[in-house]
């Protein structure tokens, strides 16, 4: 964990409610895709945990959906604003598995952390298939960015307004994609359906309301097959077999 004051480089809407914020500052504490940062926002007591979409030296990209007071405030922040953050939080995705053809499945605002993971896996020469699930065409974001990384991208929309009609599990079945490992982040029902549908090993990123975000308050504990774990510290990424559904 590192305490860093970032400066906003850009903050733009990707859809009606999803925004991309690019920040300048020290990203050295971030070591894995799937980790998160915690932002201190004006007038709010607790910091807000936001997953890291992408990071390079001195540059951090966050994608967030406006769902409450914190993210509402974030959406109004402008270029040049300073943001107080704790970075390098949580245990991210393991991008050093022996798989050759990983399947990355994201649902809604579960999509962002898969971006840097895709980048890493492609850099390691893996055949990456990315399945992105949204409710409707207007909610789709980052499809082109994933394609630009060199991944095979399949999009599913629940209402059929773009790509495969249905859920990510339908899109996977229809595509006949052959995968030997999966990584996923998204709503719980999607994660559960996916885990049931796939008989390969994989990793899942969970979400939970947090107090501290760095492992001291036990606010975000979940019971796993290996005992109580903290989503903010041992997680947010867990192995498939650790999850108690």
């Amino acid at each position: 964990m590192k305490h860093v004051v970032f400066e906003i480089v850009s903050n733009r809407a990707l859809t009606d409610s999803v925004y991309e914020m690019v920040l300048a500052g020290d990203t050295s504490a971030i070591t894995r895709p799937g980790q998160f940062v915690e932002l201190s926002l004006e007038g709010l007591f607790l910091r807000r945990p936001i997953s890291v979409c992408n990071y390079d030296e001195g540059k951090l990209t966050l994608i967030y959906k406006v769902v409450g007071k914190g993210t509402e405030q974030m959406a109004h922040l402008t270029q040049g604003t300073k943001i107080d953050a704790l970075t390098g939080l949580g245990n991210g995705f393991n991008d050093e598995t022996k798989c050759n053809a990983p399947l990355l499945v994201g649902g809604g605002v579960g999509v962002p952390p898969l971006y840097r993971l895709t980048r890493n896996l492609i850099a390691k020469g893996k055949q990456v298939t990315v399945v992105l699930g949204f409710n409707t065409a207007a909610e789709i974001f980052y499809r082109e960015q994933f394609e630009a990384l060199g991944a095979k991208v399949i999009v599913a929309t629940a209402d059929g307004s773009y790509g495969v009609k249905g859920f990510v599990t339908d899109a996977i079945k229809e595509s006949g994609a052959k995968a030997d490992y999966f990584y996923s982040c998204g709503p719980l029902p999607m994660l559960r359906a996916l885990t049931t549908a796939l008989d390969i090993d994989g990793e899942i990123s969970l979400e939970e309301r947090m107090g501290c975000g760095f492992g001291i308050c036990m606010g975000c504990s979940i019971m796993t097959t290996a005992g109580a774990k903290r989503v903010c510290k041992e997680g947010p990424v867990f192995k498939k077999e650790e999850i108690v559904w």
């Binding site: 309301r209 107090g211 036990m218 606010g219 109580a228």
Partner: peptide, 23 residues
């Protein structure tokens, strides 16, 4: 003790509520 089910945390004005339950 595992403690209470989640959510265990709520934001408040100038404070917070926790219900960890002695984990």
């Amino acid at each position: 003790r595992f403690g209470n089910p989640t959510p265990r945390i709520a934001e408040c004005s100038a404070g917070m509520i926790n219900s960890v339950g002695l984990q």
